[in-house]
């Protein structure tokens, strides 16, 4: 038996909106730690890892570890029916083939339940090694989204370079080229508006903008994003989910032959 009650139901709605473009079907894993998911996109270029810790739920009951295969588009369709202020409860029976999403309005005058069919998904679980990153850039998530969107109107790939001068996002395309440099600025009024660059070694990597743009669908989840880079390693683009966990996107780099 599984019963997870999330007072801030809008978080789950936002999580689904952030990953449904990248991943079609995925197994949600439920354990005493929390509600999590790990899935690759169909071309195995990107990986998403989601964690919603059990402590972040108002009520968290998970009698034994469960893996529930869901079509994320269908799940998003159901969650769209929840109001932004609704409390969402996820319920499932051990060994059952359905999951129920219950939505309660804040004043308790409207209660809905939506039952969704589960599916069997053969998914590969990957071990993500702990890595020391050469550089970690923390910046406003809206700024990062803006940069990815702007650059994708010029080119298909972005070169992200971190030096002591700052972080540079560059692209080239048929019509020309573009460079955007963001410098560390910790003297802003609000900490979420700061760009903080933590660099051990200069790093420069090339990535497909199409994926970066897809990751920025998670912007509503967090005011800030952190981008962790190491030469020859996938980049990690992390959006923290207030008091609950995170959505992390890993993207393999492109290399020159």
């Amino acid at each position: 038996m599984l019963e997870l009650r999330l007072v801030q139901g809008s978080l789950l709605k936002k999580v689904l909106e952030s990953i449904k473009e990248l991943v079609t079907d995925a197994n949600f894993d439920c354990s005493s730690t929390g509600f999590s998911l790990q899935a690759m996109d169909s071309s195995h270029v990107a990986l998403v890892a989601l964690l919603l810790r059990s402590e972040g739920f108002e009520h968290y009951r998970c009698d034994r570890n469960m893996s529930m295969g869901m079509n994320l588009n269908n799940m998003a369709k159901m969650l769209k029916c929840a109001g932004n202020d609704d409390i969402i409860t996820i319920k499932a029976d051990d060994g059952g083939d359905t999951v129920t999403f219950m939505f309660e309005s804040p004043t308790q005058d409207k209660i809905s339940d939506f039952e969704m069919k589960l599916m069997d998904i053969d998914s590969e679980h990957l071990g993500i090694p702990e890595a020391e990153y050469h550089a970690i850039v923390k910046m406003p998530s809206s700024e990062f989204a803006r940069i990815c969107r702007d650059l994708s109107s010029i080119g298909d790939t972005v070169v992200i370079s971190v030096t002591k001068e700052g972080v540079k996002f560059s692209t080239k395309g048929d019509i020309g080229s573009a460079n955007i440099v963001c410098r560390q600025n910790t003297s802003v009024d609000k900490p979420e508006e700061a760009t903080v660059i933590d660099m051990n070694e200069p790093v420069s990597l090339t990535f497909a903008l199409r994926y970066m743009n897809s990751f920025t669908k998670a912007t509503p989840l967090s005011n800030t994003v952190s981008i962790s880079l190491s030469n020859e390693l996938p980049v990690v683009v992390e959006y923290k989910i207030a008091e609950m966990g995170y959505v992390r996107f890993y993207l393999a780099p492109k290399i020159e032959e």
Binding site: M40, S43, H44, V45, A46, L47, E124, H125, L126, G127, I128, P129, T157, T206, A208, L233, P234, Y250, L251, A252, P253, K254, I255, E256, E257
Partner: peptide, 14 residues
């Protein structure tokens, strides 16, 4: 000329 690497080249299957 540029090759897209796969995530599975970095992270082992468990």
């Amino acid at each position: 000329r540029s090759t897209q690497l796969s995530i599975t080249e970095f992270f082992p299957s468990t």
